[in-house]
């Protein structure tokens, strides 16, 4: 087996000490493979946000190891961890965290600015990514003048601009109405599908969780259910269904960044018409079957 993009071993996170001690994570071991879409669900206080923060290297665990591409990051210096976050990750937050006074383009290119990319190249790449998200006409607008959905698209553009291998999304649709949520979800899963970007989504939203290939249910600092086989909806049914499963299973190293779309083309993601309930169920069932088949094959290999 190839190395997973993210893995943890016996991850423990404790806040406070003495009587106020709170064990947010109680020894988690898990692997997230390249190209997977993972939903982390659970009630508030279950530790899902803590897990995401540790996976995203925003916080250091009390005990245990987080490894990125097979390399443990615990021993790295803070500056090196910062660089790693800048290069490998994209972040989408519930509250957008856009700089209201700056233009859309400036907001989107912030990660490149931090990385030290020259201005002209920042502009070029910023416009590129905004074009992909159909936001290039708003590039010079102030971020404040956008609607919620547009803001979240800008956030996704910002998460994409450094060509990340993993996008972390913390309640990405928490502040959006259902129609806008749908559009934003479609964009995220479209990217996942077409560019093989690993998605890690923390959410309360069952519908959103259901669109992920894998659902980690958390309770009291433990994973109570790792529902890897559940595949729902039209968004990612083909994750494991490539013509040559052995090469294209999610754990395959072949899916590098910008690798040619590893999954069969889907109907255009953003504005796709909602599927009927029946059709969705049919696709789900089909995907289930395919996935379990692919897994079996991968295990044999």
């Amino acid at each position: 087996m190839s190395t997973p993009v993210l893995e943890t071993e016996n991850l423990v996170k404790i806040y406070g000490r003495g009587p106020s001690r709170f064990d947010a994570l109680k020894g988690l071991t898990l692997e997230i493979h390249r190209g997977e879409s993972v939903a982390i669900v659970g009630k508030s206080g279950s530790g899902k946000s803590t897990l995401m923060h540790l996976l995203a290297l925003l916080d250091a665990p009390t005990a245990g190891v987080v490894a990125l591409d097979g390399r443990p990051v615990s021993q790295l210096k803070p500056a090196a961890v910062s660089d790693l976050r800048n290069e490998a990750f994209g972040f989408v937050f519930q509250q957008f965290f856009l700089n209201a006074q700056q233009s859309v383009l400036e907001n989107v290119t912030l990660p490149l600015k931090i990385a030290g990319v020259p201005r002209s190249e920042r502009r070029r790449r910023g416009l590129d990514v905004l074009r992909q998200l159909e936001m290039d006409s708003k590039a010079e607008n102030k971020a404040n003048d956008l609607s919620g959905g547009q803001k979240q698209r800008v956030c996704i553009a910002r998460a994409l601009i450094n060509d990340p291998s993993v996008i972390f999304a913390d309640e990405p649709t928490g502040n959006l109405d259902s129609a806008t949520s749908r559009v934003v979800e479609d964009i995220l899963f479209g990217l996942h599908r077409e560019r093989g970007i690993t998605l890690v989504i923390v959410t309360h939203d069952d519908d959103l969780a259901a669109r992920c290939q894998r659902r980690l249910s958390m309770q009291d600092g433990r994973i109570v259910n790792d529902d890897a086989a559940t595949l729902h909806a039209a968004a990612a049914p083909a994750a494991a269904v490539a013509p040559h499963p052995a090469r294209h299973t999610p754990s395959s190293p072949a899916t590098g960044r910008h690798a040619a779309v590893p999954f069969p083309a889907e109907p255009p993601a953003p504005e796709a018409p909602p599927l009927s309930r029946r059709e969705r169920r049919r696709l789900e069932a089909e995907a289930d079957r395919r996935r379990s088949g692919a897994r079996g094959e991968a295990e044999r290999a």
């Binding site: 500056a79 976050r85 965290f97 912030l110």
Partner: peptide, 16 residues
């Protein structure tokens, strides 16, 4: 504060 948090999350080191 939030802007600083964002910049740090996006990989800006404390020194910067």
């Amino acid at each position: 504060t939030r802007e600083i948090g964002l910049m740090k999350a996006l990989g800006m080191s404390g020194g910067r």
